[in-house]
Design a protein around this nucleic acid. Structure first.
Lengths: 191, 191
DNA sequence: CTGTCCATGTAAGGCGTTACATGATTGT
DNA sequence: ACAATCATGTAACGCCTTACATGGACAG
């Protein structure tokens, strides 16, 4: 299970509550993992059982008390083991591609909204990644002045950037191609 | 649920048994969806209940009898509806990227096997896609001589090709960068 | 005679999503 | 007044994976 290990990864940087972890996933890990509150809470309970984390209740005056989790030695060992074990996962789940693949069951012009919705989503994600990237140095140029940790994290960011730029390029070409076909079909039906 | 609709898509091309569908997914749909036998059988039962498909038992002499499924009118309507409804899915699940992100908890040279395993997987998938692409005309050049169905299916293939070429490019750069760091660290420890 | 192909399924258990529940504090 | 933020969780339901069960035909 990857969620458990990604939580271990985040807890290795700093102690966090379930609530904090949920935000961290949204901020620092959203280019490789998405999850939600209820899943995180249940995962933390199980990780406690397994002895991967410790809890500490922090009493607060202004806000509800919180349970702050930190790694145990076992948790750190488990994390180290996980990051060095290649994951052989060949599952693919891109249903929107399936929609396009079978798109001809509908009228071709009805595929354009689909492609456009997808383009919007790609652009949104790309903008997010570019916002992060604009605040940090270029890993390919300045890696020599960085720690291993910085280099690895920036590389995952570069992956996201490269993939989304390629996806944007593809969707633009696809939209242009389909639009041209729709227009040609209209001209033919007019003449 | 996308699996149901992808099954509808495959059944729209031709009548198939559960066994056949399993093979089809592996052959014709593996660049956008992966699944397995038991899931397909259960999906077909539910799709029968919903009236999206019909069954017909085909008695065979040499082999076990098979149940051949075909689309009903409702099934075709459902499929048509599905392909034109944009799926807003922002879930991301790339645990191998997470491993690299947190890779510095281990020694940097232990990340290389991870990157190499990933490179192998990307190359394997790219070879598969290229094998299919080599047998068909270039969609960007010859779209005018193709049906809508052909164009859409080839576009999904082009997407896979573009993404995997970008991924390969990235992983090669990442391996080169990490390898350089490992070598520099060794030189420093020698001197 | 061992393994693969044909062909159908069930069972168990874990993962993931959505909705619900509570309740104080702070900002508009 | 209303919504958002802080903070923890439970319940229900469905999806997905893995393993198991059956049994004939055919190839090496």
């Amino acid at each position: 299970m990857s969620l458990y290990h990604l939580i271990l990864g985040l807890l290795n940087d700093e102690k966090l509550s379930g609530y904090d972890l949920n935000k961290k996933f949204d901020q620092a890990a959203r280019h490789f993992w998405t999850t939600d509150q209820s899943q995180i809470y249940r995962a933390l309970h199980k990780m406690l059982e397994r002895g991967w984390v410790d809890v500490e209740v922090v009493v607060q005056d202004d806000n509800p008390n919180k349970k702050v989790y930190s790694l145990t030695r076992d948790g750190r060992d488990e994390l180290r083991q996980w990051v060095t074990t290649p994951i052989l996962d060949d599952t693919v789940r891109e249903s929107w591609l399936g929609q396009i693949h079978f798109g001809a069951v509908a009228e071709i012009e009805q595929i354009l909204p689909l492609l456009n919705a997808n383009r919007d989503e790609i652009v949104r994600r790309l903008r997010d990644l570019e916002a992060i990237a604009s605040a940090v140095p270029d890993v390919y140029q300045y890696a020599d002045h960085m720690t291993d940790d910085q280099v690895l994290r920036l590389l995952t960011l570069e992956y996201g950037l490269a993939i989304h730029r390629t996806a944007l390029d593809w969707v633009d070409k696809a939209i242009a191609l389909i639009q041209r076909r729709v227009e040609q079909a209209q001209k033919q039906s007019e003449s």
